Simulated assay, not measured.
Amino acid sequence: MAPKTLSATETWVFDLDNTLYPASCRLFDQIEAKMRAYIMDHLALDGEAAGALKSELFHRHGTTMKGLMQDHGVDPHHFLDFVHDIDLSPLDAAPALDAVLAGLPGRKVIFTNGSTMHAERVLARLGIAGHFDGIFDIVAAGFTPKPEVGPYLAMATALGVEPTRACMVEDMARNLLPAAEMGMATVWIPNGTDWGAQGQGDHIHHVTDDLAAFLAAIG
Rank of each mutant, 00 (worst) to 15 (best):
K4T: 07
A8D: 14
A8T: 09
T19Y: 05
T19I: 07
L20W: 04
C25G: 06
L27K: 13
D29P: 08
I31S: 00
A33L: 14
H42K: 13
L45A: 11
A49P: 03
A50D: 09
G51V: 11
E56L: 06
F58K: 15
R60C: 08
R60M: 13
G62V: 02
K66Q: 15
D71H: 08
D75C: 08
P76L: 11
D85C: 11
I86V: 15
P90V: 15
P95N: 07
D98W: 02
V100Y: 00
L104A: 07
I110A: 00
N113T: 06
G114Q: 12
E120H: 14
R121P: 03
L123I: 00
A124F: 00
R125Y: 04
I128K: 01
D133A: 00
I135W: 15
F136C: 00
A141I: 03
G142M: 03
G142V: 11
F143Y: 15
F143I: 03
P151V: 00
A154Y: 11
G160T: 14
G160Q: 14
C167R: 01
M168V: 06
A173K: 02
A173E: 03
A173M: 02
R174V: 14
N175F: 03
D194R: 15
G199F: 03
G201L: 00
H205E: 06
H206V: 06
D210W: 03
L211N: 10
G219N: 15
